[in-house]
């Protein structure tokens, strides 16, 4: 079946890896089919002539919503750290993150 699909299983695994998602074999198969169908739907949209048309990035007819550069109160440190699994001296503490290759 995978011959007709737009995405390979490897594509799905790669996207899952980038999104830090752990997928079961069943889910991968399911997503391979679903995502391929979505891409096919977009293929159909691509047939519409859009030359000279501004890309629609937002559906609200609004632009340039700005705020003045004024400082407002932040949260107390205790509240900031309240949900952290591990803290030390006011910092969030996480496992070391850099691997030398």
């Amino acid at each position: 079946m995978s011959q007709e699909l737009r995405l390979t299983r490897e594509d799905v695994e790669r996207v899952a890896r980038l999104a830090h998602l752990g997928l079961t074999d069943e889910e991968k198969e399911h997503l391979q089919r679903d995502l391929s169908l979505i891409l096919e739907a977009f293929d159909r949209l691509r047939e519409v002539l859009t030359e000279g048309v501004e890309p629609t990035t937002h559906l609200v007819p609004q632009e340039s919503v700005l705020r003045p550069d004024t400082v407002r109160p932040s949260l107390p440190q205790g509240q900031v750290l309240a949900n952290a699994p591990e803290t030390r001296d006011g910092f969030f503490r996480v496992p070391r993150i850099l691997e030398e290759s």
């Binding site: 030390r88 910092f91 969030f92 070391r96 850099l98």
Partner: peptide, 12 residues
Amino acid sequence: SIIGSEATHVDY
């Protein structure tokens, strides 16, 4: 140094 550190502390 950044390499060989045990843990990382984060300040946002």
